[in-house]
């Protein structure tokens, strides 16, 4: 479904993605973790070309993202993306936030789009908040609207970039619950997160990154109980003790 072959990217001098090789199968849930600045966000932001890669091949659902000529609109319409800072449109209600892309990108009519939007907002537990503006919602609710916005694309892949790190602790679980349900329904997902409980429960594999490289790829139980590298051990210690 997603295939990285020798992917490289630099920010000036900084080698932010260093020879990345990774195959993600349909229905897999990949949790990406690592210290800050390790390149984990960049890894998933490349998939819908929020950031272009400079070398290597990146193929998503059979389409070559590394090729400048590829029309990204079609790929982006099949990928839902959830940001750390939500990035909801503040001048639109929850429903309008979820329907703008189906209306304008997929060409749905208003009734279809709203039906879909309501359905997705219900799915994330916000049926009673559809006419609220983002400013009237809590952080957890805003992030769930953002997930619903991604889902209305009827995506083949959902990407999450630290979806819970801007949230207060008591709101984290409501977002993780929604993500867990999605995973169990068989959605292909990649999530950058340090929520190890979530990783243990639903991840097919954990990808551990440091300094732009993938250091370890392992099933969650193996990675958490017996990391193969010193850097992995050190990282686990630092997040478990904190």
């Amino acid at each position: 479904m997603i295939s990285y072959k020798n992917v490289n990217k630099w920010y000036g001098e900084l080698h932010v993605l260093n020879s990345i090789n990774l195959e993600v199968e349909k229905g897999e849930v990949i949790v990406v973790c690592g210290p800050s600045g390790s390149g984990k966000s960049t890894l998933i932001r490349c998939i819908n070309r929020l950031e272009p890669i400079q070398e290597g091949e990146l193929v998503v659902d059979g389409m070559a993202v590394h090729d400048k000529k590829t029309n990204m609109t079609k790929i982006r319409a099949e990928i839902g993306f959830v940001f750390q800072s939500f990035n909801l449109y503040p001048h639109m209600t929850a429903l309008e936030n979820t329907t703008i892309a189906p209306l304008k990108v997929r060409g749905f009519n208003k009734a279809e789009a709203e039906k879909l939007g309501r359905e997705m907002l219900t799915r994330v537990g916000l049926a009673d908040r559809i006419d609220h503006y983002p400013a009237q919602l809590s952080g957890g609710q805003q992030q769930r609207v953002a997930i619903a916005r991604g889902l209305t694309m009827k995506p083949k892949i959902m990407l999450f970039d630290e979806p819970t790190s801007a949230l207060d602790p008591e709101m984290i679980h409501e977002v993780l619950d929604v993500m867990r349900d999605l995973a169990k329904e068989g959605m292909t997902m990649m999530a950058v997160t340090h929520e190890m409980g979530f990783a243990r429960e639903v991840a097919s594999r954990v990808v551990f990154m440091d300094e732009g490289k993938i250091i370890e790829i392992a099933p969650p139980n193996d990675f958490f109980t017996n990391p193969q590298t010193d850097r992995g051990k050190y990282f686990l210690q630092s997040i478990l003790t904190h």
């Binding site: 929020l50 990204m72 982006r76 319409a77 993306f81 800072s85 449109y89 990108v105």
Partner: peptide
């Protein structure tokens, strides 16, 4: 306007003109 707004628009596949017009 926060750059995240533009990124969110890009991620949903909105074109440049659509992002300008609606966001």
């Amino acid at each position: 306007i926060d750059f995240g707004q533009i990124e969110a628009g890009i991620a949903s596949g909105l074109s440049y003109i659509q992002r300008m017009r609606f966001i």
